[in-house]
């Protein structure tokens, strides 16, 4: 049924990360973890997958000697997200018919 849905986005946590990042300019890893209520380990894995797909940019730096990871969505990510939402809409429309 979901063959047209982007498999990278059609996963609860990855979709949550993308939905958060589409609404803001950039967000720290801790902010995303707080909002998605995911574990740090799982979130790291999913963020890496989104990064590998080119959907998000991950910036690692140090702040007061602590590692700091900030994420932001890329143009490719925005396009993929829009395409995904359109696909969802088309499924809903087919259901109605």
């Amino acid at each position: 049924m979901f063959k047209d849905l982007d498999p990278i986005l059609h996963s609860q946590l990855r979709l949550a990360v993308m939905s958060l990042l589409i609404s803001v300019k950039e967000a720290e890893f801790t902010f995303i973890r707080e909002k998605t209520k995911a574990t740090a380990g799982n979130l790291s894995v999913q963020i890496q997958k989104l990064k590998d797909a080119g959907y998000i940019e991950v910036n690692k730096q140090f702040k007061d000697n602590y590692p700091l990871t900030t994420c932001s969505i890329t143009k490719k990510g925005i396009d993929a997200f829009e395409k995904y939402v359109k696909a969802l809409q088309s499924y809903l429309n087919t259901d109605k018919k």
């Binding site: 996963s11 609860q12 958060l20």
Partner: peptide
Amino acid sequence: MEKDFSVQQSLEVIESMINQA
């Protein structure tokens, strides 16, 4: 779990995350 992730659930995730920000 991910296999059961429905269109409806997708929309709920998107809505709740966008509302957060």
